[in-house]
Amino acid sequence: MGNQTTSNSATRAAATGASPEGAASPSAPRESGAQAALEISGVGKTFPPSDGSPGPGTVALDKINLSIRAGEFVSFVGPSGCGKSTLLRIISGLVPPDGGGVTVNGAPVAGPSTQVGFVFQDPNLFPWLTVRRNISFGPRAQGRGAEMAAEVDDLVRRVGLAEFADALPHHLSGGMAQRAALARALVNRPPVLLLDEPLGALDAFTRMAMQDEILALVRQRGTTVILVTHDIDEAIHMSDRIVIFSPRPGRVSQEIHLGGSFQRARNAPGFVDLRLSILETLHFAPSEAETGSTDPLRYI
């Protein structure tokens, strides 16, 4: 990658139609008139020291501000420990923030609700329920099992598990289990869907197939999605916007708007350039100024 690293990221971004923004500026909706589905304002989170001593804790998130349009697909990337998963848990209401707040369609998030769906890295299917009953868990827990039965059947078919509907989770492969988990989260028709590295444990081919399946499902429903991923190709392929986090304290270091105009096919021109520019931001590819230092592990 020797000569590629010499070109600078701004020109690459211009060439690909993506526009990196500074960290400080909260992202303004790019298309006028688009309504913010999700508003994250001043969210902070500090964890106490793990040894229980009084002292200052770890600042996992430092006053995060983000505004996400309805129907937008946003990816959070960044090194381990930058707080992106914590932010996802705060958005879902599983964890309360220390400061700031999150609103979904104007309503503040006070706890987990059917407004925000969540898919975890581990499918976490209930092992005592069949695939169909896992997917219908949400409606049944809310006492709407009967009226949602058709919706459940439809989703079972859409995620390609029709012939496994009555199988128990331990009979499923990793990809099938994750598809069931996705259907389970989508059955409530949440306006916002949070994906915490849902494809992280899958093999490369299953992964690429599922990226497209997820895109098709959420596009059709107009779901607003936040995806946490370590896979930059995945982020570029799927997102309208990529938010890059820096660790300790967790902050937004850069936002890249790919928008609707960006051609995100895996073989599109500019894909590799964009990938390189993100790696550079994450300090995993040496920039012009840094070509002298060669140890990539120093940032981990």
């Binding site: 609700s113 059917t114 969540f118 868990f137 949400g138």
Partner: peptide, 11 residues
């Protein structure tokens, strides 16, 4: 994690 999943599903 099972309890968390159930809570995000509205239980």
């Amino acid at each position: 994690s099972h309890l968390e999943v159930a809570r995000t599903l509205g239980a």
